[in-house]
Design a protein around this nucleic acid. Structure first.
Lengths: 412, 412
DNA sequence: AGTATTTTTTCGAGGCCCGAAAAAATGGGG
DNA sequence: CCCCATTTTTTCGGGCCTCGAAAAAATACT
């Protein structure tokens, strides 16, 4: 089972701890780091000296916020932006976007492209992805060798190893091993992530006071996706990225879902489902391929204006989401929820039915206290999550003693 | 966040590793332990010498299975049964059972008692539990000081800290801090566990080749419970023991559940629900308090005999369980399932509808490959799980250097 | 300018794990 | 019957790592 701790792992782990503390805290002093990690001052001093020598950390200028305290001023430690860089690739419906991010987390370059993902061949899709990455890598402003990792995100299902897209609504092609492909092409470690999981990762960095150990991010878009953090860990399935909240069954044998099955939550709350209900097309109507954000906003506007099929469509969406959340809460207990995506902008139309439904479920007793945030724009969140995921991977690799670590020692 | 590894933790963790390896393997040699833990022979040698000196491990007799190998024969290391003892207390409907288990996992004493849990006062219920524990502790054959831990299990919901019973179907009383009560009474560390979680723990020890990293244990009894192991870890909710599979919503607004809500899986698949449907009482009929195992077996026999309401009741149960499992699989991906409890003996009646329902869900594509085991008797499983849980806790405590560890050093 | 205060570094001590070699324990073969 | 090959276990020296205490550094207050 789990493996013993070798003596040499100790330093590596504690280096990881220090880097992690710096990434989370921003510009902590050595004393602060000692406090948060529980290690002694001497250890922190030694490790940070190494890390500075290796160019991973940098000493900030003496605290600019005029030190009002008495003694020797703390010197903040920060991540050296030039220590490494990562790339994020977000592949969504008809849209491909790439960004280069420095080690401190700042975007240094980006590129976006429209394409017709639904009809593209497998090769074309892969080709577009590698081409856009190549263009960024060829940017003369970028030191290619510093790019330490690539993180891709895609709507749909990925495997637990974060290497392969198993299935995605944005393309009929399946089982594309994007991570392997990019690694083979560029020799840079890559991972293939699920978009909603990245949303959750981003929320955690954006608002750790609200989203820390246990929370749910739900994407209300064409499909319904979920990213789940439980006990401080990103939750994934046993084989796939899992958390297919949208395909929990709301009504056995119910409305036709895009996945071909019936009664999924998505078949009531996805854009196409709301659209279908608003147009009173009947639950067996084949889901349309895409409803534009503008169309959805118009629908929401109509629903707010008058009590008609549009309003009823949002009510049904709320009900499905509410019962789904209720079932989820039965399994994991209630937790804060962030609603993300275009329909999050219509959450006012969804919320009443949603709360009413939750009240009918095991999560119901806490119904009042469950809070919802909304964030209509999922793309920035996904990109941010990818960036943090890639960067924390780098954190976990760079600190391994060996290579640079040795030269650091020699300098000292 | 996570805390740095202090130098002194190293030894403690590696001792834990060694004890764990011995508990899992039975009578492993030092060489085997070195292989499974990844630690060096010298380290294992040193640690096991300490542990033997402290009376935690014992050297077995030279391998009785006539060593056919050439060199120096391996000496097996085993747990010293006298190193400690634990108690398990299982509280179920109208039944209280206690066992004393030695450090090697053998039952050394037990006691069982019928009582009327549904009508007892809070004080009486607590009193019965402390009384039965006291009687066992007063057993002259038992060295009281060796009892290192007590694990209670109860049907129902407990808190994540494993200290309090929050709610249970076996009594109208709620929020009883059993762990605190027993600790205060006897000065022995105690935990309050959920019965289905203990079933899962036991299955893991009984059949690790089948139930290891990811599996589901479902209790089909008066209520429907679940124990879930994901990625090798027992899954719990954020606040409570969680995993309330029985109260996922199968049909919004559907059959009346014992919990007062409508449409829960349990309202179709619990004993009372099967009974209600078999008697054609209507879905709004108040759930009866208890259906005896004999009654359920009679029901199953009738269902096997002729196609009537009894068979239909089991079909409905299968359907509810199938859709519930399908929704669960959407979240965590499919995993092996063990069906436990009296209705597991009627699984032949349940399985067809269950499989048909699963096929309608996101887990459907794997429908064929999902395997079910059945185990009609939940009590031994729960007791076994409690015992292993308590023992592994002891494993995690005894190895902390200090106290005995010192004397061990002096001897050496 | 001197002192109090706080942060950071230095230094010696103690522990832990590892690899290599030695010791122990046994079966096989001449 | 003795010696050697083989495998397991222990011993030993070396190298790291972390820790606590004390020293050094850097600033505010008086």
């Amino acid at each position: 089972m789990s493996v013993g701790i070798r003596h040499d792992d100790l330093r590596r782990r504690n280096r990881a701890m220090v880097i992690g503390a710096v990434r989370r805290a921003g510009q902590p002093s050595r004393t602060e780091i000692a406090a948060t990690t529980g290690l002694s001052h001497s250890t922190i001093s030694a490790i940070s000296a190494d890390l500075i020598g290796e160019g991973i950390l940098t000493e900030g200028k003496p605290n600019e916020a005029g030190s009002l305290k008495r003694g020797r001023p703390q010197v903040g430690l920060g991540l050296n932006p030039e220590a490494a860089a990562v790339m994020t690739v977000v592949l969504s419906l008809n849209f491909l976007s790439v960004a280069v991010i420095d080690y401190a987390g700042q975007v240094v370059a980006e590129e976006q492209r429209r394409l017709d993902t639904l009809t593209m061949s497998r090769e074309a899709l892969i080709g577009e992805c590698t081409a856009i990455v190549r263009r960024r890598l060829e940017d003369p402003d970028l030191d290619v060798s510093s790019v330490a990792r690539i993180a891709l995100a895609i709507q749909g299902i990925t495997d637990t190893e974060a290497r392969t897209m198993l299935w995605s609504p944005i393309t009929p092609r399946t089982d594309i091993a994007f991570a392997d492909i990019l690694e083979a092409e560029f020799g840079i470690p890559a991972t293939m992530e699920n978009d909603c999981n990245m949303m959750a990762v981003a929320l955690r960095w954006r608002a750790p006071e609200r989203y820390r150990d246990d929370f749910i991010a739900i994407l209300l878009s064409h499909g319904i996706g979920m990213g789940l953090v439980l006990k401080g860990e990103l939750f994934t399935g046993t084989h796939s990225s899992g958390g297919e909240f949208g395909h929990m069954i709301h009504r056995p044998g119910g409305a036709l879902c895009r996945c071909g099955r019936r009664g999924c939550v998505e078949a009531y709350a996805g854009n196409y489902a709301i659209w279908r209900n608003a147009r009173q097309l009947g639950e067996d109507t084949e889901p349309v391929a895409d409803v534009s954000d503008a169309q959805m906003r118009a629908l929401a506007a109509t629903a707010r204006e008058k009590d008609g099929p549009e309003r009823e469509a949002y009510r049904k969406a709320g009900e499905a989401l509410g019962y789904g959340l209720g079932s989820l809460f039965a399994l994991i207990d209630p937790a804060p929820v962030a609603m993300v995506g275009v329909s999050a902008a219509a959450f006012d139309l969804i919320e009443p039915a949603l709360r009413e439904a939750i009240a009918q479920t095991a999560g119901g007793q806490h119904s009042k206290s469950i809070s919802f945030d909304t964030e209509p724009n999922e793309l920035p969140l996904i990109r941010e999550g990818c960036a943090m995921r890639a960067l924390t991977f780098v954190d976990q690799e760079i600190f391994a003693p060996g290579g640079q670590a040795r030269s650091g020692k020699n300098v000292a």
